[in-house]
């Protein structure tokens, strides 16, 4: 499972990188979202998968899955949400003000940057 996940994570990162390098501001925003998904799965996989039951004391299990990566990811999910929302607003405001989603055209001109 970990091997399979490694490839899934790689594909997510690849897709995210490609999107972030593109010219369209919408693609860049989506790229950051995809990147965060990849990063979350990477953290989880690094900790080892299915090592036991869910990390709840009530389960009374002999082994639990690692709770630490889960706590880190929970924090990361919420932060990623805040970042995505901010980017989204930034993107649509600039589209409305400037009438383009092309990063090439959004560049500051000479002497005005």
């Amino acid at each position: 499972m970990e091997i399979l996940m490694a490839f899934i994570i790689g594909i997510l990162f690849m897709s995210a990188t490609y999107l972030m390098l593109s010219r369209s501001i919408v693609r860049i925003i989506i790229g950051t979202t995809v990147l965060s998904h990849g990063a979350h799965l990477l953290i989880l996989t690094m900790g080892g998968l299915k090592g036991g039951s869910a990390p709840l004391v009530g389960e009374n299990a002999s082994a639990y899955t690692d709770p630490l990566p889960q706590a880190l990811i929970l924090t990361a999910i919420v932060i990623a949400f805040g970042v995505t929302a901010l980017f989204l607003v930034l993107g649509y405001r600039s589209y409305k003000e400037l009438g383009t989603d092309n990063m090439e055209k959004l560049r500051g001109t000479e002497g005005n940057d």
Binding site: L44, L49, K50, A54, P55, I73, L74
Partner: peptide
């Protein structure tokens, strides 16, 4: 699947 109910919910 990876036994992370909190994450799944969130």
């Amino acid at each position: 699947i990876f036994r992370a109910p909190d994450l799944a919910l969130t």
